[in-house]
């Protein structure tokens, strides 16, 4: 099967890889360029743990044809921390026990980042709406919602992220 060349920016770094025809972006991120932060849950769009940002907006990487992101900007959870400095969302998730098994966490973080980048002080309802495509089977969602609201507050205070 023919391989196709693909170029994109991943968390600020240029990537050039060969992809299979019909290969999805999640598979290319995990196996092609070794970013294991986006997870595979369902491959159907239902769980949201594969959520990444394409040019800043949340997309389901399991349903994105890899070759369609030629030249685009991809952000994953792997790009959140600055060196040893965690992103305020990551800190807030830890402090609020927003991760139990952690499987949903990368998708939740990306959905939350997209929200806060656009809307730095969301209401609780807006947070619920923003993560409505992401399933968590452990936490009951409340700790996640609280973490995102708290990150919004601390980010506002610290002007960071």
């Amino acid at each position: 099967m023919a391989k196709k060349p693909l170029h994109f920016r991943l968390n600020g770094a240029e990537k050039a890889v060969f992809v299979d025809e019909g290969q999805n972006l999640l598979d290319v991120l995990r196996r092609g360029v070794g970013d294991l932060t986006p997870k595979y849950g369902c491959g159907q769009g239902a769980c949201g743990t594969c959520t990444v940002l394409v040019d800043g907006e949340p997309h389901l990487s399991c349903l994105t044809l890899a070759e369609a992101v030629e030249g685009r900007r991809i952000t994953t959870t792997g790009g959140l921390a600055q060196g040893n400095q965690l992103h305020p969302l990551q800190t807030a998730f830890m402090e609020n026990f927003a991760a139990q098994c952690g499987y949903c966490t990368p998708g939740m973080l990306m959905a939350a980042k997209a929200l806060l980048d656009r809307n730095p002080s969301p209401t609780r309802q807006e947070v619920v709406e923003a993560i409505s495509g992401n399933i968590c089977r452990c936490t009951g969602y409340e700790p996640i919602i609280n973490a995102i609201l708290e990150a919004a507050k601390s980010r506002g205070a610290r002007q960071y992220g």
């Binding site: 019909g22 999805n24 159907q44 769009g45 389901l60 399991c62 349903l63 994105t64 044809l65 369609a68």
Partner: peptide, 21 residues
């Protein structure tokens, strides 16, 4: 291929009813 939310799901599931996108 539009946005692919249904087409790519079918690809992921190895749907045999099409062979070209």
């Amino acid at each position: 291929l539009g946005g692919g939310t249904l087409v790519m799901r079918a690809v992921n599931e190895a749907d045999q009813s099409f062979d070209t996108i």
